Amino acid sequence: MGKRNKLWKSISVIGLAGAAGMSLSACTEEENEGEAAVAPIETSVDAVALAGEGEGEGEVISAGEGEGEGAAATELTSDDLAYLTHLSLIKGHLYVGAELYKAGHIEHAKTHMKHPESELYADLVPALEARGTAGFAKELTAVSDAVNEEKGVEAVQTALDTLLAAIDTNAMAVSETSATPAEKLKLVVQLLRTAADEYAIAVVDGKMENAHEYQDAFGFTTIATDLVEGIESDESAVTDAKAATLAILADVKPHWPGLIPPETLKTEAGALYGAAAQIELLALGL
């Protein structure tokens, strides 16, 4: 699938600083323009957002189709960054699905909570086995069942907490060097680039075309922010990079005025690509 290939072009080892600089200069003007134009927009009725999902159901109804399925099993097995990105994308879907459920948007939530047999998890299985981890199929099923059977917020949250703990355990199956602040920022870059790809599908010429992708992008960016907030270090270079990254992520928050998107948006994917380029430079500086 073309979208699958496009999205996973971004899941790769960080490029040269010169390339990042070019990307940054190309996106900075677009980022500023998009953010300056954004204005508070009230959430539209569900019918508008569901229309976007209707379009996505033919392409992206499986949780995260495109965000990871294109990565070969060998890549997920041998490349820690690709592996951690894949796990983080799953977390992004789970986060936005849970938030939608809590807000009463049950049908929206169901599109983000898929059975572990779906491609996003299935493609991960060979890497989990190769890395000697137990996986989290049972926990993922429990969350999916809690949402799809509408068992209630408490049941969904309990199942989600158990699942997130299992994902974190599986995320430990990487080298020590993959846990450094620089590597964590590289992971943030991958999540933002994927979010930008999704947002470009969601918002076309200022119009909301796909609610599911809009929500995916929100989930991925939220997980990226959580990753940065979790960075701990006494080194001034790291603390400075962390603060700068959080500021960059705060600047793109207006891209999501609500869980259910409005009919129109003045924000664009370019600002997200620009944010990723800026954070890439910060990662390269550590």
Rank of each mutant, 00 (worst) to 15 (best):
G2S: 12
R4S: 12
R4Y: 12
R4G: 07
R4F: 12
S10G: 07
S12I: 10
V13P: 12
G15R: 12
L16I: 10
A19C: 10
G21R: 15
M22S: 14
M22N: 14
A26R: 14
C27K: 14
E30D: 14
E31P: 03
E33N: 13
V38P: 07
P40S: 05
E42H: 10
E42W: 10
T43V: 10
T43H: 06
T43L: 09
S44K: 10
V48G: 10
G52C: 06
E57R: 14
G58W: 10
G68K: 03
A71T: 12
A71L: 15
T74S: 14
L84I: 05
H86C: 05
S88L: 06
K91Y: 06
G92N: 02
H93E: 09
Y95W: 14
A98N: 13
E99I: 09
K102Q: 14
A103Y: 00
A103Q: 07
G104K: 04
H105K: 14
E107C: 06
H108M: 06
T111N: 11
H112R: 13
P116H: 03
Y121N: 02
Y121C: 00
A122I: 05
A122F: 14
D123S: 12
G132V: 02
A134V: 02
G135L: 02
F136G: 01
F136C: 00
K138Q: 14
A142T: 04
S144K: 05
A146G: 02
V147I: 05
N148L: 09
K151D: 01
E154P: 01
E154F: 01
E154C: 04
V156F: 06
Q157T: 15
T158F: 04
A159M: 03
L160C: 03
L160R: 02
D161F: 07
T162I: 08
L164V: 15
A165C: 05
A165S: 08
A166G: 05
D168Q: 07
D168H: 06
T169Q: 13
N170M: 06
S178M: 11
L185W: 03
L187M: 08
V188D: 01
L191I: 05
L192S: 07
R193N: 15
D197Y: 11
Y199C: 00
I201V: 14
I201D: 12
A202P: 03
V203D: 03
D205L: 09
H212N: 11
Q215N: 11
D216F: 12
A217K: 02
F218E: 09
G219W: 05
A224R: 01
D226F: 11
L227Y: 14
V228Q: 00
V228P: 03
V228C: 02
E229M: 11
I231Y: 01
S233R: 07
S236N: 11
V238R: 07
T239V: 12
T239G: 07
T239P: 04
D240T: 15
A241D: 01
K242S: 01
A243P: 05
T245R: 04
I248L: 08
A250D: 15
V252F: 08
P254V: 09
P254W: 08
H255G: 09
L259T: 00
P261Y: 03
P262Y: 00
P262K: 01
T264H: 15
L265C: 08
T267G: 15
T267Y: 11
A269N: 04
G270T: 00
A277P: 01
Q278L: 10
I279W: 00
L284H: 10
L284R: 15
